[in-house]
Amino acid sequence: MNTVTKPLYKDKIVAQQRALQDPDWVKWSLITIALSFISLFICIPLGLVIVQAFSKGLEAYWSALTQPDTLAAIKLTLLVAVVTVPLNTVFGVAAAWAITRFDFKGKSFLTTLIDLPFSVSPVISGLIFVLLFGAEGWFGEWLMEHDVKIIFAVPGIILATLFITFPFVARQLIPLMQEMGNQEEEAALSLGAGGWKTFWAVTIPNIKWALLYGVLLCNARAMGEFGAVSVVSGHIRGMTNTLPLHVEVSYNDYDVVGAFASASILAALAIVTLILKTALEWKQTNR
């Protein structure tokens, strides 16, 4: 049917489009502005990162990446992501479940609280942990006595990253689960499935793309976080430097190739994230 009726209406649609369209000069100047803005602020800087990283050749790039401090930074960044992303995935699903499936006092307060890490400056987030666990902090003395190091050590970095990234998964799931309602879960329960079985067989398949999307964003931020981590890390080379911190330290030491080589890894991560994000968005709308 459609193929038959289409040509009949085509002229009409074209005419309608023309009538509703802005003049050509508006169209082209807007496109020019948008494109030059993107190239000036995104494409050129990104290209520069790669040019600078390879400015002394492939060998210098490779040796910059394989020096012990850089490798330690990569390892630490991966460790932080491996610990924080699963924890925040579990937390995000639990929080979304609690908010969308139960009625309780302080629910809207909890919903607002989840957004807190987005609205607070990352530096403040880092400082919170210094105030809690630092030498002068609330638990500082107790921690000192028991020889536990949190600030200027890996646990502090993980805590700060956990705090910064916890909204991502919950934020993705809450609107979706609200929209879906819980009738499918009730149906599964009425058919004799237990709570756990219902969660895996009905809930997870329905939220999986949104969940993956949230995990992806969470991971990107966990690997790229600078502000909060910078406050709690202490910048000890080879010990508490994550990749973003390593870029800064190298740059301040006039090690341009080292700085940009590390930066190129983060840039590559960003591009991969973007591609996966686009793919997941496509998947979500074309289920």
């Binding site: 009738q183 499918e184 009730e186 149906a187 599964a188 329960l189 009425s190 058919l191 004799g192 499935a193 237990g194 009905v202 398949p205 329905n206």
Partner: peptide
């Protein structure tokens, strides 16, 4: 509900999509 042995049909079907 899962132990009662009832069959429930929902107004909006609630089929597993």
């Amino acid at each position: 509900v899962s132990q009662r042995g009832i069959g429930f049909v929902f107004q909006h079907y609630a089929l597993f999509r």
